[in-house]
Design a binder for these strands. Sequence first.
DNA 1: AACCTGACTCGCC
DNA 2: AGGCGAGCCAGGT
Length: 106
Amino acid sequence: MTTFDKVYEAVKLIPEGSVATYGQIAEAIGNKRLSRVVGYALHGNPQPGVIPCHRVVKRDGEVSSAFAFGGANRQVELLKGEGVTFVDATHVNMDAHCVRALPMIL
DNA sequence: AACCTGACTCGCC
DNA sequence: AGGCGAGCCAGGT
């Protein structure tokens, strides 16, 4: 089990209609400082369609500017399609959709 | 094999 | 309050 695998497992656990921050993912796999690795892992996204990387946002709810599915706007559309609301064109309504308790995968 | 960089976050100054 | 450095892992040069 590599760190990347843990990241993918954690991301797949995000319920539909909810979002999680890189920090939440990192914390779930053991170290919140891994947030950077989380981003890198999703950047490589080896299994698109399986790994809902569009449900992962920065700690303030802003979507990544380097989203690779067709632009950040595409990510926003996907989230809206799941019932996620936005406080801003690029900021997810964390107060309503942020995952409160992401299970630890250690 | 070492160094640099990257979808991040937090703690100091 | 805003800017800067540190810490983490993997992959490319």
